[in-house]
């Protein structure tokens, strides 16, 4: 035996959505590694390909439209060539997902208990009655008050925070090795956001799951992640430990994201915005995708796609000029809060 394989290993992962009108290249060559028990946060704007990447990890993009290529293994399963039958045994058991909108992500006409039990019945081979009992324990684990009554509740009878807790209970019901979270706090109130984040962090430590967290909220990332990866236009543009990336972002886009975030205790400091909008992924992009919006862009930036270059201490950046820019001053980010919002 060689060294233990990472929980997630993606090399040159591509996802495109093919329809009659256009082909959208949503993910263009992502490399990703995650060890067991590690928490990775993927940051990026809407349309940067972060959610698509996450869904690709369990092949959840619409099967008749999404084309996946490259190398991808999750807990030893080759997720590119996996059969539908195997895929359904991996989903929910080895890897499971929490979604952004707990209202629409739960079936409105099934009780909470039934929906949680369903996963257990599917993967653990236990009966309905036993599954119900386990569902109750799970609701208590995710700290839902008067869990027994809530077991019989329908999603519309619960508040957003409780629904998201139920969603989490469902996702962790079979103790997955990998938990994927697609902006799980975005649809919630600020106070509830923190509770959900704390719960997720606690569960992650208790169950030792690897977690990949997708968000556009830097505060969330700082709160929970071991490592941060920043995505832009379907590619990773920067990766590194949370502290490193938050203290000294190397890529101009990551710098822009930090500059556009509200930090507590920095009243009076001017927020900066990133001018322009992300590129249209229906058309091929020449050169660095961020160049049109980059304050440091030179003509040479449009010449070719920059490499994702490894730097010191496990960091990597996709920028021609990161060393030259590094000299420029960046505002030191202080402690960030989950309320931090990314302004457009």
């Amino acid at each position: 035996m060689t060294a233990p394989a990472p929980l997630v290993r993606a090399r040159d992962l591509h996802v495109s959505f093919v329809s009659r009108d256009a082909t959208v290249k949503a993910v263009n060559g992502v490399d990703l590694d995650l060890d067991a028990g590690e928490v990775l946060c993927i940051l990026g704007e809407s349309g940067s390909g972060k959610s698509v990447t996450l869904r690709a990890l369990m092949r959840l993009n619409p099967p008749n439209k999404a084309v996946v290529s490259g190398e991808l293994s999750v807990a030893g399963h080759d997720m590119v060539t996996i059969s539908d039958r195997q895929l359904s045994s991996v989903r929910g058991k080895v890897v499971s997902m929490i979604f952004q909108e707990p209202m629409t992500a739960l079936d409105p006409v099934y009780t909470i208990g039934r929906q949680i039990g369903e996963t257990l019945v599917r993967h653990e081979g236990i009966g309905r009655r036993e599954a119900e009992q386990r569902a109750l324990e799970l609701l208590e684990l995710v700290q839902i008050p008067s869990a027994k009554r809530r077991l019989q509740a329908y999603p519309h009878e619960l508040s957003g925070g409780l629904r998201q807790r139920a969603m989490i209970a469902m996702a962790i019901s079979c103790r997955p090795q990998l938990l994927l979270a697609d902006e799980p706090t975005t649809a919630l109130d600020a106070t509830v956001q923190i509770q959900i984040l704390l719960l997720l962090r606690q569960l992650q430590q208790e169950l030792g799951m690897g977690v990949i967290f997708v968000t556009h909220d830097l505060g969330v990332a700082g709160e929970i992640a071991d490592r941060i990866a920043v995505m832009y236009a379907g590619r990773m543009v920067e990766a590194g430990s949370t502290v490193d990336v938050m203290r000294g972002p190397l890529h101009p886009y990551a710098k822009g994201l930090l500059g556009a975030t509200v930090h507590s205790g920095l009243r009076g400091t001017r927020l900066t915005t990133i001018p322009g909008s992300p590129p249209d992924l229906r058309h091929p992009i020449e050169g660095c995708a961020f160049a049109p919006r980059c304050p440091h862009a030179l003509e040479t930036c449009s010449a070719g796609v920059p490499e994702f270059r490894p730097m010191q201490a496990g960091r990597a950046v996709r920028c021609f000029r990161s060393e030259e820019i590094a000299g420029a001053t960046t505002r030191p980010p202080s402690r960030t809060t989950p309320q931090g919002v990314l302004l457009p």
């Binding site: 369990m58 359904s88 989903r91 997902m97 979604f99 629409t104 739960l106 079936d107 996963t119």
Partner: peptide, 25 residues
């Protein structure tokens, strides 16, 4: 096309399991 169908696929339900939810809805 609803989100909860994606959730069901994510839970590992097979086709016949999902059909049950569609019928009920």
């Amino acid at each position: 096309s609803q989100d909860y169908i994606t959730t069901l696929r994510g839970k590992g339900l097979r086709r016949h399991g999902i059909v049950g939810h569609v019928v009920r809805n």
